[in-house]
Simulated scan of single mutants.
Amino acid sequence: MHRSEIDARYAATHALCQRAGALALAGFRSTSVEISEKGRHDLVTNVDLQIDALFQDELRRAFPDDGILTEESLGQGASAMWVVDPIDGTQNFARGIAHFAISVAFVADGTVEFGVVYNPATAELFAARRGEGASLNGQPIRASQVTAPGRAVIDIGYSTKLPQSRYVALLDRALSAGFSFVQQGSAALGLAQVACRRIDGYVEEHLYSWDVLAGLLLVEEAGGWSMPFALDRDFTQGQPVLASARALQTSLSEVAQTQFWTGGSLLGS
């Protein structure tokens, strides 16, 4: 795909995220948000669906040959594909917690070309172009330079897709290694915070492409490290995610026991 075509899509993403953010804020401030359960601790609101429809409609109109994959309506794969999470952190959103984001990644021929993560509640727009660095509201950002677990704070995400005992064991290993941790409820924002050095790492054993593709590019372009997220198969399959300051790669990988993670799949899951 030519650079000019990617440029057009990148510009469209910024405009769409602003429009989607306005919808999200209106819903966030409303007392009449409609909430449904897709599964245990897995919510969807009418605002998720409104933002999903906005992206579907506008992207199909502007880029009719592109594929679109979203959390709420899934979609078909294509050589050029949008991967969208209308609201990452719906639990937070539904409870009035201002830690949620719109996450958009654009993938061309198996490569994530750009990613945008936007938190409308704080008016923070994180963006990355492959090979061009990462930014927060237009200003360059860099990942943490922390070198020791004893000085590091990581976000350890929780997934109901796996046994609770795995999460408890992961927490135990992290604390035993000296890490401090938080669990903030949005993988997209967790990775964005790694990219801008608010935290030093993110780990979760089961996430989807729409949760993390934009955030992983942010970390990479901000000079951090991340375990590869496989794009050579079904984008709707969950995979483990691990990202951190570069100097923490070995220690955090040991905590996550990545020797048990192979080919994007979790052994025993």
Rank of each mutant, 00 (worst) to 15 (best):
A187R: 12
A214K: 00
S209M: 04
L191E: 05
A192R: 00
L191T: 05
Q184L: 15
G190C: 11
G190T: 11
L216Y: 00
L217Y: 13
V203C: 15
L189P: 03
I199V: 14
R198P: 03
Y208A: 10
R198E: 14
C196E: 06
G215Y: 09
R198D: 14
S209Q: 00
A214M: 04
V212P: 04
A214H: 02
G215F: 03
Y208W: 14
W210T: 06
H206G: 09
S186C: 03
A187G: 08
V194A: 08
E205Y: 15
Y208H: 13
Y202E: 02
A195P: 03
E204D: 13
E205L: 13
G190F: 13
V212I: 04
Y208Q: 11
L189Y: 07
A192E: 04
L213W: 02
R198M: 12
D211Y: 04
L217I: 11
V194G: 04
H206K: 10
V212M: 00
R197D: 15
S186Y: 09
Q193L: 06
H206S: 12
L189A: 10
S186D: 12
L191G: 04
E205M: 11
W210A: 06
G185L: 01
Q193R: 15
Y202W: 08
D211H: 14
S209E: 00
H206E: 13
G185C: 01
G201F: 12
D211W: 07
W210C: 08
L207H: 06
Q184P: 04
Y208R: 11
V203M: 10
V212S: 06
L217M: 06
R198V: 14
L216A: 02
A195T: 02
L216C: 00
G201L: 10
A188L: 05
E205C: 04
D200Y: 05
Y208V: 03
S209R: 12
Q184D: 13
A192C: 04
R198N: 13
G215N: 06
V194M: 09
A188G: 01
R197C: 10
D211L: 06
E204S: 11
G215Q: 06
L207C: 15
C196M: 01
L213F: 05
I199N: 14
R197N: 12
A188D: 11
R197I: 00
Q193V: 01
R198Q: 13
D200K: 09
A188T: 15
A214V: 03
A195D: 02
Y208C: 10
